[in-house]
């Protein structure tokens, strides 16, 4: 069990889960430029593991990924009491209505389409989620 407490005064930690190396790099540069600490994962399984071990403040979660996809990963993150309170923002290029609904019903706080938002807009959304009070559930 990981007993390490998050150092509240330090930079906020963002877990970026995406299988596309180029996109990981792009978003990492944007977020680190805004003084966030960025941790990355290349597939759903790694994302689930790191959401537990890294205790991030926000998770950015892609959907179409090898091994465990983003929707399955989201449901596992939300089923685990240790990771349940972490706000999850879906960050994907798939915008089908059923996926969006599924993500929100599983507890995602937002759903961003990569081709619609610039890295800066994505970072602003992260800031917004971080400043809003944690959900009561």
């Amino acid at each position: 069990m990981n007993t390490q407490q998050p150092t509240s005064s330090a930079a906020k930690k963002i877990l970026l889960v995406d299988d596309d190396q180029a996109l990981r790099q792009l978003y990492s540069i944007e977020l680190t430029g805004r003084q966030y600490e960025v941790v990355t994962a290349g597939d759903g399984d790694e994302g689930i593991a790191k959401s537990k071990s890294e205790k991030p403040d926000v998770i950015l979660l892609d959907i179409m990924m090898p091994k465990t996809d983003g929707i399955a990963a989201l449901s596992k993150i939300k089923a685990d009491d240790a990771t349940k309170p972490i706000p999850v923002i879906m960050l994907t290029n798939f915008g089908q209505e059923n996926l969006v609904q599924q993500a929100f019903s599983l507890g995602a706080v937002d759903y961003l389409l990569k081709y619609k938002v610039t890295p800066a807009e994505m970072a602003e959304k992260v800031a917004q989620v971080l400043s809003s009070p944690p959900s009561s559930s």
Partner: peptide
């Protein structure tokens, strides 16, 4: 569309960062 969108997203996102 997905395969083309991913690299296009990178190119557009990166140019956006350079311009800012």
């Amino acid at each position: 569309v997905h395969e083309l969108r991913a690299p296009l997203t990178v190119v557009r996102g990166a140019t956006d960062m350079f311009l800012r």
